[in-house]
Amino acid sequence: MNREAVTKEKICTAPKSKTGMPIMHCPGCHYGIIIRVICEVIDEMGIEGDVVGLTSVSCSGPWAYSFYFDSALCPHGRSPAMGTAIKRIHPDAIVFTVQGDGDLGAIGLGCFMNALLRAEKLTTILLNNGTYGMTGGQMSPTTLLGMRTTTTSEGRDYRVTGFPLHAAELVASMKGVAYSARCTVHTPANFQKAKRAVRTAFQKQIDGVGYSFVEFLSACPPIWGVSPVEALKFISEKMMAEYPLGEFKNVDSIL
């Protein structure tokens, strides 16, 4: 075949709002896919010029380098407080926080809950991988019962550590919330659903309805001690059993 005759049509490219910064996460980690979800939605909505992204002390901290829009790395658990100020000062900006389960559910739970109580018009993206990945796999608020971690070597026991945090359901129970959903990116279909969830969340903020929240179940193969492929199974069999997917709240007015 004549090489000249081969047509080259670009069918896939990096999102416009993603910088050339390489994705530096572990093999099988879903964070790179979630960056893509966020950036594709921002591209499709054409809001790159209005977005301020706040990342947190976690494996998602360096995401600020990946965003081709205004972004900052925030102290551990404090991005909802910082986002509050930025959003109040620039009401037309679209401010979102990216937080890990430890960042949001442990050290930053007070900050997060108070931002929800104030009905801030922010969007929070929770990355729930059930562990502290960055510090080497300790128990987090969303670690499954029975799951072994470096601080629950015999498995998480509710008599010692209580029960896993169901953030999306908790958020949905708050009056100031416009939207709350849980999704995954472990299959192509779920990737598309996740994009719809993030898009809806941003739209709620743009419409000024109230707080919007999207929780991602995300794989952490090295800490879970499984292969990237087994991690997909772990998500569908174990994580989704504890943390059901779906929309838990979707309203057009919080009053």
Binding site: P75, R78, A81, M82, A85, I86, I89, H90, N114
Partner: peptide
């Protein structure tokens, strides 16, 4: 201007941080 009564001083300092990041005299 913007006034927010924070839930604690530890939150206030990060709201201050956010306000300054937003370019406002905070």
């Amino acid at each position: 201007g913007v006034f927010v009564q924070s839930e604690s001083e530890s939150a206030a300092i990060y709201m201050l941080f956010g306000g300054v990041l937003a370019g406002e005299r905070t």
